[in-house]
């Protein structure tokens, strides 16, 4: 039976096993491939999306629990904070391979939405589970602070 999802301000009808992780609905059914598969177990944060504004790993959210929620993916990240975070990312040349960066940006935006001037510890706590194998952590931290300043 098709289920209704609210993603990036649009409504989608999805017909799939209700236990399917949201990640694979986004990627394989809706072609929203900006949300990445990295580990499937919520260890790496590459699939971070916003569910009612809160950062969650889409690999651990089942389709049925996403119904009725407002889902935001990297493709639909167009809030004032989100746009600034993306600009700061570009300005500081944060991304290297880029595969984890959608998740990093989603986590960083959620952090700035609730804490407009995060300290290093706040950034560590919010992004501790967003792994970057290229090691862009320093620039992620700088970009979050850069965005915070621009938004202030």
């Amino acid at each position: 039976m098709p289920m209704t999802l609210h993603i990036n301000g649009e409504t989608h009808q999805v017909d799939a096993d209700p236990r399917t992780p949201l990640l694979w609905i986004l990627r394989d059914k809706l072609q929203l491939t900006g949300t990445k598969y990295g580990c499937g177990e919520s260890f790496c944060g590459a699939c971070t999306v916003h569910l009612d504004g809160k950062p969650v790993t889409a690999c651990r959210i089942k389709l049925k629990s996403a119904v009725g929620k407002q889902i935001t993916t990297i493709e639909g990240l167009n809030s004032r904070v989100g746009e600034q975070v993306k600009r700061s990312w570009l300005e500081l040349n944060v991304a290297q391979c880029g595969y984890c960066q959608s998740g990093q940006i989603m986590a960083a935006t959620a952090l700035l939405e609730r804490n407009p001037s995060p300290a290093d510890e706040d950034i560590n706590e919010a992004l501790e589970e967003n792994i970057c194998r290229c090691g862009t952590y320093l620039r992620i931290r700088q970009a979050i602070k850069h965005a915070a300043q621009k938004l202030a």
Binding site: G34, I74, E75, W89, L90, Y99, Q101, I105
Partner: peptide, 16 residues
């Protein structure tokens, strides 16, 4: 600015 674009908005296409 880097020329490997699309990595900040999810539009960069990887094999995956």
């Amino acid at each position: 600015p880097r020329k490997d674009v699309g990595k900040e908005d999810g539009s960069a296409i990887f094999t995956q």
